[in-house]
């Protein structure tokens, strides 16, 4: 387990910025978490968002014995890109910039791994450009996952009801579907 290097931090922030915008600063300064400072740590290829005191304690565990700590944000791919996992949802959800709320009839199709269709959208954030990170919420503001906008809001208005509005990236159904691979290192 070690802190992130500069290029690693940059790729991580680039990914987080697609969903959070300026909200990442809250993750660094811990305005949201309040009391204690949280840090980013990398273990293997996975990045964890951990309370600093816990990260310091974890140094006493040897590398191959340490499986997980804090919140796993995602992992670095072999090509050096960063892939956000569904476990990062509670971290990015409060600071998300663009959001899509889906109706109850669209929740199940989404949680089974489908994209968000226009017919299922209850409401969406205005002025959302194309291919921008979007948080998917249920109508009672429960975060269900995140994705990438397929069309800008203006274009999506003209779309037919079966057209895709948001491409799914991760959803909370993965906790069941990917149960055996989600937490393996």
């Amino acid at each position: 387990m070690r802190p992130l290097t500069e290029p690693e931090t940059k790729t991580l922030f680039e990914k987080l910025a697609t969903y959070c915008g300026n909200g990442i600063s809250n993750l660094i300064t811990d305005a949201a978490t309040g009391s204690e400072r949280h840090v980013f740590r990398v273990q293997g290829s996975r990045v964890f968002y951990v309370r600093e005191s816990l990260a310091n304690l974890a140094t006493s565990v040897k590398r191959d014995a340490l499986l997980s700590l804090g919140v796993c944000l995602g992992k670095y791919t072999k090509t050096g890109k960063f892939r956000l996992h569904i476990t990062a949802l509670p971290v990015i959800a409060p600071f998300a910039r663009y959001k899509v709320w889906i109706k109850p009839n669209g929740e199940m199709p989404y949680l089974y791994g489908g994209n968000v269709l226009k017919a299922h959208v209850g409401r969406w954030s205005e002025d959302c450009p194309e291919h921008q990170g979007v948080l998917v919420l249920s109508m009672n503001d429960t975060p269900l996952g995140f994705g990438v906008s397929a069309r800008s809001t203006a274009e999506a208005r003209k779309l037919d009801p079966t057209g895709i509005v948001t491409f799914r990236q991760a959803d909370i159904g993965e906790y069941l579907r990917e149960e055996d691979t989600l937490f393996t290192t």
Binding site: K10, A17, I24
Partner: peptide
């Protein structure tokens, strides 16, 4: 924060 501001 410096890296974040550049990225943002």
């Amino acid at each position: 924060m410096a890296i974040m501001s550049v990225v943002n």
